[in-house]
Design a protein around this nucleic acid. Structure first.
Length: 312
DNA sequence: CAAACGTGGAC
DNA sequence: TGTCCAAGTTT
């Protein structure tokens, strides 16, 4: 927190001992809301009339995949499957094919499974309740709250990598957030505006701020609406000394790459892929078998007498 | 809790 | 060229 001004105000706005709202955090929230209304991107899931199902699909696709790569696949997906009922009526293979090269194809399988669960347990309507959302396949803390908040307007803290980074910098004065923790949720809750409308806009706005201004690399502080209130800036941008996320392993030559090659082959045809064809994909038999066994275990590949297929 | 899980663009 | 990063979830 900024301690440079002798007039710094720390009045609490509630008796809740977990509430970290102060004059400073309320200024930050208000500035983000105003900034977002002016500067938020025109994205499909922000269009009026965008459905809860559309929101759920978009959140699945946005898990670790950049916005620009998601948009065309999202629109094609929703044209084909306007509600979970239509998707649930198709085999998982259709979902995995439509997922194409978005990456992490288990998400396609989970999204299909979630569509079946929504159809069977919720009459084909995406649930509003965070608990019910969390019970769906592939839906975790982030996605459940994002759907409840953005599709249904409920007041929930939405925590993702962007909100964690903005709070780490602006509020905590750290250049990077620490490892993800349940405390992130309470930290976000603690500064979330009380009003339903304000909370919804703040959730979207702080994510947007982290995505296009307060970025991981080369943040554009001169364009930041909360630069005057930013604790990290006030302290002279001290370097981050805490635990770093482990460096990502090399993709070239990894099991992930082999899985990706096999999945690409399975998606490319409606006929079973033979052992011989699988062998052409990667020279190392041990690694190849490990990848294939993993895919079978994940349910992304099915063994038949004629070879391997997507799950039907 | 750490590790696994795809893919492609940016610097 | 190699590293970093992207609206996470699961085991």
């Amino acid at each position: 927190m900024d301690t440079t001004a002798g007039t710094h105000i720390t009045r609490r706005t509630t008796d809740d001992s977990h509430d970290r709202r102060t004059f400073e955090t309320e200024v930050i929230a208000a500035a983000i809301i105003v900034w977002f209304r002016e500067n938020g991107r025109d994205l499909p899931w922000r269009r009026p009339g965008f459905t809860a199902w559309g929101t759920l699909v978009s959140e699945f696709m946005l898990q670790q995949t950049p916005v620009n790569r998601v948009i065309p696949h999202l629109e094609a997906w929703l044209d084909r499957w306007p509600s979970p009922v239509e998707l649930a009526a198709e085999p998982p293979a259709s979902a995995v094919r439509a997922w194409a090269s978005l990456g992490y194809p288990r998400r396609a399988l989970w999204l299909h499974a979630a569509a079946v669960e929504i159809t069977e347990r919720h009459g084909g309507t995406v649930p509003e309740d965070v608990g019910a959302l969390l019970a769906l396949s592939g839906v975790g803390d982030y996605t459940a709250r994002a759907v409840a908040a953005f599709a249904y307007g409920h007041r929930h803290p939405v925590v993702d990598t962007n909100t964690r980074r903005v709070i780490a910098r602006a509020v905590d004065g750290q250049g990077e957030p620490g490892p993800p923790s349940r405390r992130d949720l309470t930290a976000m809750e603690a500064i979330l505006p009380r009003g339903v409308v304000e909370a919804r806009t703040f959730n979207a706005g702080i994510m947007e701020l982290g995505a296009i201004v307060c970025t991981a690399r080369a943040p554009r502080c001169q364009e930041c609406p909360i630069r005057e209130a930013c604790a990290w800036r006030a302290q002279g941008y001290p370097p981050y000394l805490g635990a770093r996320k482990p460096t990502q392993k090399k993709y070239e030559g990894s099991d992930r790459q082999v899985r990706g090659l096999i999945m690409r082959e399975l998606r490319s045809t409606h006929r079973p892929v033979t052992d011989t064809e699988i062998e052409q994909l990667w020279p190392d038999a041990v690694q190849r078998d490990r990848a294939l066994t993993g895919l079978l275990g994940d349910g992304l590949a099915i063994a038949t007498v004629d070879g391997y297929t997507l799950p039907s």
